[in-house]
Design a protein around this nucleic acid. Structure first.
Length: 434
RNA sequence: UCCUCGGUAGCUCAAUGGUAGAGCAUUCGGCUGUUAACCGAAGGGUUCCAGGUUCGAGUCCUGGCCGAGGAGCCA
């Protein structure tokens, strides 16, 4: 039996008989010729079936193949200028694993579809060229993040998904029954990261996070993945440097290894290629001046809206770091600036091209008394945070970190309109299936 | 939660209150190099649901369901 070959590897088998296992992507016909397109998850290759060269049985089997029917195809690989990938398969035999019947055909045709239809068929939509490209870039981004931290001596410490209380107290949590108790799905691993940082020095976690906010925009999911580093003895500037180096590393990695996917997505790579270090840094105060000059209604003390973020990011050709927001708009655990206690030692990174905030973080409040005060001011249940206060009772040190939302990074790097395409099975305000 | 828009063939969409249509997909026929193939023919409808107005409703009115875009909030 000829070797089973992945389509992406056929170039090494020119002139040889191989077996390709996959699905029928499309079928064109011209008289006594059939041009079936096969895909196997690694690529697409066009088969050629000449009526006079195969048995009537093989010809008939290929001719009646329906879209996405599963097959095992035997044929000889041939280089051909006319073929899309440069290679074709001269089919000699086809084993049909499943012929999808005509009375319930594969629903996603190679033509246009609306978003509701596609989202309802997300489990099948993933098979399309475009979605596969996005999955590939997402994989590369996650791998790059992990490599970045691993190469710098960080230890991955997983944080829990069931949590007893709000991490930040500001956003809405998903509540679940936990035997006789209530539990909440995590909205950030950060508080646990701070414990881990005191254990291993440099840590990061990577996992799903949940927000029960009724946000309905192109930037929001109710379940999304976040990578969160936390470093003991680090200050705001260290966190900012770490964040910009991470982003630059990820972009460079995708450009180096996923050009084909970016091309399939018709992504203009010029804006990505300009993402060189260092990134511009802007204080909240300076950002405010820019926004007010541009006619924004925003007043000092308020957080930026989506339009404000777009105005700011359009001023630069690479991500911009905005630091020292007013404490009142930031979480209780943010350290105040000793020089100006009304602002927090925090940073947001805004992606270019209007993609908005991809990173949020900063220096944490290390002082026990101040942290107690902030917990009380925010009317958070003190008891739930006793373990967190322990971190300030037993050898507290300055420390800083941030969280980076993977889906927004994928959307930006791929140049997508909406984050719903960046995650295999998006969970949104009005979308829980499939 | 609020604002705006939408729901008609498998899909994408048309249709002054007056016979429900097109393109694509599907099936059949034609073509020995097709590239979202092309050419010809055919089949395909509970117009989201429930009421109401009208001689007559896909179209107008009321309520509901579902979805999309945006706002606020966030990554």
């Amino acid at each position: 039996m000829p070797p089973i070959v992945e389509i992406r590897n056929v170039s090494g088998f020119v002139g040889q008989e191989v077996v390709v296992q996959g699905w029928l992507y499309n079928l064109r016909e011209s008289g006594k010729l059939l041009f079936p397109l096969f895909r196997d998850g690694t690529g697409i290759i066009q088969g050629v079936v000449v009526k006079s060269a195969v048995t009537a049985d093989v010809f008939a089997r290929v001719r009646e193949l329906t879209q996405e029917s599963s097959v095992r195809v035997t044929g000889k690989v041939r280089a051909d200028q006319r073929a899309l990938g440069g290679f074709e398969l001269d089919v000699s035999d086809v084993e049909v694993l499943q012929l999808i019947p005509l009375d319930h055909p594969y629903p996603i045709t190679p033509k246009e579809h609306g978003i509701e239809f596609l989202m309802d068929h997300r489990h099948l939509w993933l098979r399309s060229v475009r979605q596969r490209a996005i999955l590939g870039v997402r994989h590369e981004i996650i791998k790059a993040c992990r490599d970045f931290f691993d190469e710098r001596g960080f230890t991955l410490v997983d944080t829990p998904i069931f949590t007893p209380a709000a991490c930040e107290g500001t956003t809405t949590l998903f509540e679940v029954n936990y035997f006789e108790d209530k539990a909440y799905l995590t909205q950030s691993g950060q508080l646990y990261n701070e414990a881990a940082a005191a254990a291993v020095g440099k840590t990061y976690c990577f996992g799903p996070t949940f927000r029960a906010e009724k946000s309905k925009t192109r930037r929001h999911l109710t379940e999304f993945w976040m990578i969160e580093p936390e470093v003991a003895f680090a200050h705001l500037d260290d966190a900012m440097t770490l964040a910009e180096e991470l982003i630059a590393f990820v972009v460079e990695r995708v450009l180096a290894r996923r050009r084909a996917e970016l091309k399939a997505l018709e992504r203009n790579v010029a804006p990505l290629e300009s993402c060189k270090l260092p990134f511009p840094r802007l204080s909240y105060d300076d950002a405010m001046k820019i926004l007010q000059e541009k006619g924004s209604e925003i007043q000092w003390g308020g957080d930026f809206g989506g339009t404000d973020e777009t105005i700011l990011s359009e001023k630069f050709d690479r991500p911009v770091l905005v630091h020292r927001y007013p404490s009142q708009v930031k979480a209780f655990y943010m350290a105040p600036d000793p020089a100006r206690p009304e602002v927090a030692l925090c940073v947001d990174v805004l992606a270019p091209e209007g993609y908005g905030e991809i990173v949020g973080g900063g220096e944490r409040l290390a002082d026990y008394e101040l942290l107690v005060k902030r917990i009380e001011e925010n009317q958070l249940p003190r008891q739930a945070f006793e373990w967190y206060l322990d971190l300030r009772r037993y050898g507290t040190v300055p420390h800083a970190g941030f969280g980076m939302g993977i889906e927004r990074v994928v959307a930006w790097i791929c140049g997508l309109e909406h984050v719903r395409e960046t995650i295999p099975f998006p969970r949104m305000l009005y979308r829980l299936t499939p």
